[in-house]
Design a protein around this nucleic acid. Structure first.
Length: 923
RNA sequence: GCCCAGGUGGUGGAAUUGGUAGACACGCGGGACUUAAAAUCCCGUGGGCAGUAAUGUCCGUGCGGGUUCAAGUCCCGCCCUGGGUACCA
């Protein structure tokens, strides 16, 4: 008698494939249900145990919905453009397409083994020209659109041109670049082609602008934030600086309000919504103009606390602010220049997180306070970010902690404007206070003072009320090879959309590196290497990783359509994703961009819904244990963990495959990556290189992944599926550990033994179940159904175990009970259940069975075992009939000898009876 | 720094709406079967104190306060860990 999972799983894998058990088509007679996973990036290290966690959960839910009669769309594909394949191409010269193809093959094998109910006929790959043709198509729509704030939707650019021809842009209410000039219709008509295109570009939803990038001069390329460690490139250890570069951006800010309000209409957990709200960062405040003394310029500041305007004692502007050059005095020129150069080496995150080491420089100029007319010094400091608000602030040290810290450091005034509040030790950021020393705002509380200050500022014409968003337009180009090429060419330095409807394919190039001039790899392609070529040159940038993933859920509905990105009748049938399962690390990236594109396609009339994902579950990450080596800065020498503090070092991830018990295999390490081939090591006293470790996100870039393959080999996919669910709540983060997998494997073995004899023949009887047996299975039906509805996947495993233990104790292998039981189990362990189902005599798949119906009558009890507590502490239990009234219960309790004992002569104050829950005796 | 989570036995976790803290497993200890091992089955298992025992009793859900008849759960203030922070996806 043995549970031969290998044989069973192979058998049903093949059967499902040849019977197309999981393929699905539109069926108007059935209710649809769309279950989607965040599709993976197929990395070279294969699927790791963290990936299936979400896939298993959603697969269970998809199977559950199907058992309840729904037509379930449950597809899978690959987000197959990305950095690692390109990195590998740079190292080996192999085309990323080959790497990607191999990786996908491996992923598919791994996914197949786990027994997912994916409809593989719908597979898509973002790097497939048949797919990215439509990603390019959406880009074309964005390019050809502008946002009309009057209609509050995206419109075709031709409507804007019409308006320009009639009225110029004076009446236009549309988000556009800050430097857009005003013109009338006559001027418009007289502009030449280039000028007109230049102006239109300022309104398009896809537009060109100068944005900051991490530029690594030594590598001649732009680096991802991920690839920069402490101001140096992770690859090669070269200095990285901030540089402005002309790039495509998408005007997501035009949708800020709708993206914010749309959150109210979707069933996501509140923390993710909160993160998106904060990311969008809507804040109301005022834009106030400060004139610069002895200078023609003025500086606008954005503040959410105009009530504190009389507390201003200096002004701070961002080092990148264009006005810096205009207001810096001769005397301060060198200081300011040096400071701005220093800052350009720092990343934005460093600037924001580093609040211990406050830096700044005086510009030499003063601003005139618009109300008091006093002069205040203008400083330049990196804690002010150029891209937020107006890139300048009025500093109120008594009311803002960062301003306070800055004032302390540079010995600036801290005037107090708060009644009965001490600001000598820290700033007062609370709104619960009364304003003083503030002229017309005196004795108002902050909330009223905000209103009054704004109305006064507007009346005096020194500022305006302004709603500001923290969200910035999304930079949409990358200086990479392995991404979607833009369907764009240039003529006279002006970008134009390709008129050709075919896919613009990635051209072949000889090397995947940037050119000597610092142009992206695509600049290596000659004219004849492009399948379509127009104008003087093609766009050399490619689209970012999130382009393809921003709309893939739509393509799954109609993956092979060559005429449209999705057919109308199909998108109308499948509609929104009903359940979207994926990692919380995508909270603001992918999930926000997808929402943006869906809103946009809705505006264009292609979709009937604005929000892509109705219900979202964030599976908590499975965390991995990472190892680190410590590289001495500017060298290729590595210091053992114990001695790392003796040197200035950078912490670098090292593949856990090269490490055993935290000890590095030095030999393997030098062979791991070419740049480490001449690595030298400073070892510890035992002659070893000890690595540091951390528990963090399991990710290929952290080299800490673990594959599910061995576990499937050893225990089978059913066990893996159940174990991943049994680990804990789906939404919780948990470190990976295979202790305990035996428990669920034993459970499946026990089920096998209950239902099979020594010869592996099914043994079920047709005898009618007993009352107790009915009770066991119906409690199980109830709990599992309830828990599935609330996505509590881990507790279901426990309920299944409890029920099986009871059935074993009852020696129950009765057909009626076993049939219900394996249907309940089948979403979790589809292979073993399909096997038993077929042994029970069914010719169709268990997936087409009906979910058992819970019946109250089987679990009804006459009495309940009440816990009796004294002052909240449980002392004993008492079995009481359910029909008893509160008064009758009270009488029984008081008379009980145990009660008298526990009261111990104390005066009884009252008895609290919570029906069906607890009885508490207060004394 | 900022935003968002999480912290319960030796371990993963359970406790759905404020109502018996530790379900279900792992691990560990003891026993049965066996020449032996594996497999399987049975019993015990948060900590302290008292008792031969049944049992009794006190402590206990990161730390410090608070609300309540009753707090892992609600409120206030901390600490630690993880995720995101706009070019990893």
């Amino acid at each position: 008698m043995n549970y031969n999972f290998k044989k069973i799983e192979k058998k049903w894998r093949d059967w499902w494939k040849s019977n197309k058990t999981y393929s699905v088509t539109e069926d108007l007679t059935k209710k649809k249900f769309y279950v989607l996973d965040m599709f993976p990036y197929p990395s070279g290290s294969g699927l790791h145990v963290g990936h299936p966690l979400g896939y298993i959960a959603s697969d269970i839910y998809a199977r559950y919905k199907r058992l309840n009669g729904f037509n379930v769309l449950h597809p899978m594909g690959y987000d197959s453009f990305g950095l690692p394949a390109e990195q590998y191409a740079i190292q080996t010269g192999q085309h990323p397409n080959i790497t990607t193809e191999n990786n996908i093959k491996r992923y598919r094998e791994q996914l197949d083994k786990i027994g997912f109910s994916f409809d593989w006929d719908r597979e898509i790959r973002t790097s497939d020209p048949k797919y990215y043709k439509w990603t390019q198509w959406i880009f074309k729509q964005l390019f050809n659109s502008y946002y009309c704030s009057i209609n509050d939707k995206a419109c075709h650019i031709s409507e804007l041109i019409k308006e320009f021809e009639i009225n110029g842009n004076k009446k236009v209410q549309s988000p556009c670049d800050g430097d857009t000039q005003l013109f009338d219709s006559k001027e418009w008509v007289n502009f030449n082609e280039k000028k007109q295109q230049e102006i239109l570009l300022k309104y398009r939803l896809a537009y060109l602008s100068d944005t900051w990038v991490n530029w690594c001069p030594a590598l001649g390329t732009v680096l991802a934030n991920d690839e920069v460690k402490d101001g140096y490139s992770e690859r090669g250890n070269f200095p990285v600086e901030q540089k402005k570069m002309r790039q495509w951006s998408l005007r997501i800010t035009a949708y800020a309000n709708r993206l914010l309000n749309g959150l109210n209409n979707i069933d996501w957990n509140s923390s993710i919504k909160e993160m998106q709200r904060n990311w969008i960062g809507k804040s109301k405040g005022a834009l106030i103009k400060f004139k610069v003394a002895k200078n023609v310029n003025s500086v606008e500041v954005f503040t959410t606390r105009p009530d504190t305007i009389f507390g201003v004692s200096f002004m701070v502007i961002a080092p990148e602010h264009p006005i810096v050059h205009k207001i810096t005095t001769k005397k301060q020129y060198q200081n300011v220049l040096d400071y701005c150069n220093d800052v350009s080496l720092k990343s934005e995150r460093d600037r924001q997180s580093n609040n211990k080491n406050i830096t700044g420089v005086f510009s030499g100029s003063y601003a005139i306070h618009p109300l008091t007319k006093k002069t205040i010094p203008i400083w330049i400091a990196d804690y002010v970010i150029a891209s937020y608000g107006s890139g300048a602030i009025m500093a109120v040290p008594c009311g803002d902690q960062r301003d306070w810290n800055f004032a302390k450091k540079f010995n600036l005034d801290i005037p107090n404007i708060f009644k009965n509040t001490d600001v000598s030790e820290s700033a007062n950021e609370s709104l619960e206070c009364t304003i003083i020393n503030s002229d017309f705002l005196n004795n108002l509380n902050s909330r009223d003072a905000i209103k009054k200050s704004i109305s006064t500022i507007e009346k005096l014409n020194i500022g305006t009320i302004k709603t500001n968003f923290r969200i910035r337009d999304a930079v949409f180009s990358r200086q990479r090879y392995w991404g979607e090429p833009f369907p764009v060419y240039y003529k006279d330095d002006t970008p134009y959309i390709l008129n050709n409807n075919s896919c613009l394919q990635l051209p072949k190039i000889n090397k995947y590196l940037p050119t000597k001039e610092g142009n992206p790899p695509l600049a290596r392609a000659k004219k004849e290497d492009w399948n379509i070529f127009d104008g003087e040159k093609m766009e050399y940038n490619t689209m970012p990783g999130w382009a393809g993933s921003s709309w893939y859920f739509l393509r799954f509905m109609d993956p092979n359509n060559n005429y449209e990105f999705v057919a109308e009748e199909k998108v109308n049938y499948w509609g929104q994703v009903d359940l979207y399962m994926g990692g919380a690390e995508h909270a603001v990236g992918h999930l926000l961009y997808s929402r943006f594109w869906t809103h946009f396609l809705f505006d264009l009339g292609y979709l009937k819904f604005q929000e892509p994902f109705k219900k979202l579950i964030n599976q908590g990450m499975i965390l991995g244990r990472s190892n680190f080596v410590y590289r001495k800065t500017d060298t290729s020498e590595f210091v053992t963990y114990e001695k790392r503090h003796n040197y200035k070092t950078t912490k670098i991830h090292v593949d856990i495959g090269l490490v055993n018990n935290d000890i590095l295999d030095v030999e393997k390490f030098t062979q791991w990556r070419p740049e480490f081939s001449n690595a030298k090591f400073i070892l510890n006293d035992s002659g070893n290189y000890l690595c540091g470790f951390e528990i963090e996100k399991m990710s290929k870039s952290k080299y800490n992944t673990q594959s599910p393959d061995e576990l499937i080999e050893k225990y089978g996919a059913d066990t893996l599926r159940m174990y991943e669910m049994f680990l804990g709540p789906i939404e919780q983060y948990k470190p990976w550990d295979i202790k305990g997998i035996n428990g669920v494997h034993n459970f499946l073995k026990k089920l096998w033994r209950l239902t099979h004899n020594e010869k592996n023949k099914l043994i079920v009887t047709d005898v009618n179940p007993t009352k107790e047996e009915y009770k066991s299975i119906h409690i199980c039906i109830k709990k599992i159904t309830q828990d599935l509805e609330r996505f509590s996947f881990n507790t279901i495993v426990s309920h299944l175990m409890i029920c099986l233990n009871e059935l074993i104790n009852q020696d129950c292998n009765k057909r009626k009970i076993i049939t219900d039981y394996i249907i309940l189990l089948s979403p979790y362990a589809p292979f073993i259940c399909e096997e038993i189902w077929s042994s029970l005599g069914h010719s169709s798949s268990i997936n087409d069975a009906k979910w058992p119906k819970f019946e109250e009558k089987y679990i009804k009890e006459d009495s309940i075992n009440y816990p009796i507590a004294f002052n909240g502490k449980m002392r004993f239990t008492l079995n009481l009939n359910c029909k008893l009234s509160k008064k009758e219960i009270e009488e029984i309790i008081i008379k009980n000898p145990k009660t008298i004992n526990y009261l111990n002569n104390n005066q009884l104050k009252k008895i609290i009876i919570v029906p069906n829950k607890i009885i508490n005796i207060v004394f």
